[in-house]
């Protein structure tokens, strides 16, 4: 729209932006406080970061979380891309529609339902709860978003490219590796990053399927926060904030690179939950 924003409009969004960011700034600010509570800032200190880095248990949980995020994103990117190829190659229209609506079930279901149903599922399979159940769940709920990010690239690819390759005698595997995959690569990378953030962000599903021995950062934050304020969590928030800033940065670099290459997908649409 071309209308310029009015002054009241600008004041309004400034206030909303302030409200959006105050809790985050507040959270991170107190990670530098000498005190032990989130009230009355008591001078600058890095001691909570020190405590955090000395906390062996926290370090192990941090590594677990990263490991789960990376492994699950790699697997879900592979399966999700295959799924996108399957949907793209679906012969009949209703086959495609059915696959797509089944795909979106996990995207729209409330986390509690996903968590509870996976818990029943793993118990029915007699799979012990822990690392593997968490990993499988993360792979499972990351696949649909990968598919949704890869599919548009596939759909906008002109069929004449594969036809030409076929006429020139390329085998199906050559077509896939030399034509299709390079073309949809930006979608695959975007899907991979989205999958990582989904994994890092998830609490509810993990909480249901994690059992006793295994913990991720989200679950740990929850159990500590239930006990009250500990500025170590604030320090953790500081680190995770920087971590997600880096992720966002990398993601948008890739995205803008993609749009530079002619993909018209808007940056904003991608991040819809």
């Amino acid at each position: 729209m071309e209308d310029k924003a009015s002054r009241t409009g600008k004041i309004y969004i400034t206030i909303v932006f302030l409200l959006l960011y105050i809790p985050i700034v507040y959270l991170i600010l107190y990670s530098f406080s000498k005190g032990t509570t989130m009230t009355n800032f008591q001078g600058f200190s890095l001691k909570h970061y020190g405590e955090l880095f000395a906390d062996k248990r926290m370090l192990a949980i941090f590594l677990n979380t990263i490991l789960i995020a990376l492994l699950s994103s790699v697997c879900s990117t592979i399966i999700g891309t295959m799924g996108a190829l399957a949907v793209h190659n679906a012969k009949r229209r209703h086959e495609r529609e059915t696959l797509l609506s089944l795909n979106s079930i996990l995207l729209v279901s409330p986390d509690v339902i996903i968590g509870a149903s996976f818990l029943i599922f793993f118990t029915a399979l007699k799979l012990p709860l822990g690392f593997w159940s968490v990993l499988l769940s993360h792979i499972a709920f990351e696949i649909p978003i990968v598919l949704l990010l890869v599919l548009p690239r596939l759909d906008e690819m002109s069929p004449s490219m594969t036809n030409a390759a076929m006429d020139l005698g390329a085998s199906p595997s050559q077509i896939l590796s030399k034509i299709v995959l390079p073309y949809i690569q930006p979608g695959i990378i975007a899907g991979f990053f989205m999958a990582i953030t989904y994994s890092l962000d998830d609490f509810a599903v993990t909480f249901f399927v994690t059992g006793n021995g295994f913990t991720t950062l989200s679950v740990e934050i929850y159990s500590r926060a239930r006990q009250g304020i500990s500025l170590e969590i604030n320090a953790l928030a500081g680190i995770m904030f920087i971590f997600s800033l880096i992720l966002v940065g990398v993601y948008y670099l890739i995205e803008t690179h993609n749009t530079g290459n002619g993909a018209k997908k808007s940056i904003v649409e991608v991040t819809d939950r």
């Binding site: 809790p23 934050i221 995770m240």
Partner: peptide, 17 residues
């Protein structure tokens, strides 16, 4: 940007606020 920050951390911030 705020959506990239863990939900639990945001909730935790409000416990303090």
């Amino acid at each position: 940007l705020p959506t990239w920050i863990n939900l639990l951390l945001k909730a935790y911030a409000f416990i303090g606020l």
